[in-house]
Amino acid sequence: MIEWPEPFVLRALVAGLVLAVVAAPLGCIVLWRRMAYVGETLAQSSLLGVAFGMALNVDLTLSVIIAAVLAALILIWFGQQKLLALDSVLGLMHHAALAMGVIAITLLKGPAIDLMGFLFGDVFAVTRNDMIWVVVGGALVLAATLALWRSLVRVSLHEDLATAEGIDPRLSRGAFDILLAVTIAVSMKIVGILLVMAFLIVPAVAARPLASTPERMAIIAAIVAMIGVVGGLFFSLTVDVPGGPSIVLTMCALAVISLMAAGSRSR
């Protein structure tokens, strides 16, 4: 058991809580628009960003954000064509990005490199520099999400209705994809490439049965995510297991309880 509060524990806690709040509304929209696969693809493209950052010797968070945003732009561009469903493009990009990322990092740093930190996150290794990214980036993403919220909800609810009422769905979709890419890139530090979408979606799943409006769903998702971060970090420190998976597992437990309660109520 580690003495409380060590600075690295405090940093992990603050970064986790900030990202929990930022990611919750985005996670709700991902759920509504059935975009989990898009998110996974953006996340796995981030590994290439890690490789580029190492090769060019720049800040890894910055290179990961750039890689994720580039992947989002490619997806937006692919989304314009109607020949192939986006799913098939994602199926290709998703695995290609992961494979290329692993190969590129191994070539650069040799087989001894530990990929675990990138794949599952290393929340207790969050540095002061990372904190700046989390707080500033998080505040920007949250502000943009709030500004776009109404049009995002309307496009998610019924795209044609929103279009007929004067919203450009491509604009709000594109903006959302980029916000999602930035959030995934920053959250990767905490829960890793393979678990980052769970960090976004699971709190939204837990919130769905408890919410009556889209706004309440986002707020409840944020609360669930914060409980998940605190509970997960506590579990991780107590049992001495990795932090990212502990956070996600705590969130999943909350979601299962919420869904089971909803199931028994509707019977």
């Binding site: 759920l31 509504w32 628009r33 059935r34 909800v153 998610s156 609810l157 019924h158 044609d160 769905r208 919410a211 009556s212 409006t213 889209p214 309440r216 769903m217």
Partner: peptide, 8 residues
Amino acid sequence: DIERAIPM
């Protein structure tokens, strides 16, 4: 056509 996953 209305998306049912959104509480509303």
